[in-house]
Design a protein around this nucleic acid. Sequence first.
DNA 1: GATGAAACTCTGCCGCC
DNA 2: GGCGGCAGAGTTTCATC
Lengths: 146, 146
Amino acid sequence: MIKDKLDLKIIKFLKENSRASYAHIGREIGLSASAVGERVQRLEDTGVIKKYVTIIDAKKMGFSVSAYILMSIDSKHFHHFMDTLESFPEIEQCSRVTGENCLIIKVVVKDSDHLQEVIDRLTPYGNPSTQVILSDIIANSSKIID
Amino acid sequence: MIKDKLDLKIIKFLKENSRASYAHIGREIGLSASAVGERVQRLEDTGVIKKYVTIIDAKKMGFSVSAYILMSIDSKHFHHFMDTLESFPEIEQCSRVTGENCLIIKVVVKDSDHLQEVIDRLTPYGNPSTQVILSDIIANSSKIID
DNA sequence: GATGAAACTCTGCCGCC
DNA sequence: GGCGGCAGAGTTTCATC
């Protein structure tokens, strides 16, 4: 768990650049590298730090279209759908939201043909309503700390 | 830009753990540390790798409620709203989607009071429709590569 | 908990292939 | 473009406070 402001400062640095070295963070916040390392270890162990990930430009990987798909899953298919979710590599996010078996799904696909194919694969489970993303104005920049 | 399968393998490792060392990645994929370093440098320079970030458990930071807010911004306020977006630290994602000035916004807040306050601050710009997130089934796991 | 020192590992740069 | 080697920097562990 988080103990003090130094923990918050460390988290702030790692959120902005997860490859920042402990030595570098330590210099910035006035702590030795080993102290930073120990704190990060504790934050990892207690689950405050969940993962270090790299953000890739999907467009440069040939995935040019993103979309939100809102759908209410037929209750008879709900559990089965949850099991098959993993078979959709196009799904980047999937949140269950308030409303009867309502999901908000974010997909990343190559092109509109690919989007259509994904929608067709989802349709047996409910009635997907799709909104194509024109631009990401803010992307994953949780400013919880500031 | 991406050149070959080795680049893809490197990206795959870094997506899973952005703190993996070049030496470690090199050992896994059969390349020297310096070769991995050069490739990563190129991927960063060409914008394929956008950022290294750390995923923090929002609940452990005291932010227990997340929600999607769908809204269509009044056209007269649209530009002004875009400028004030940055003043909402609660907004984790904001995407412009198809439909007239339509936005899908993901917010992370402390509790329902805090959610209400955010909604009240958004209301002057349009008519926010809110769906509280019950659970994140898939979160930011773009499996574009596999 | 933080520190500093020691042992180990990684990174960045080089010339070479 | 990749490799090996090297110097400098970073990490990890541990005794000490």
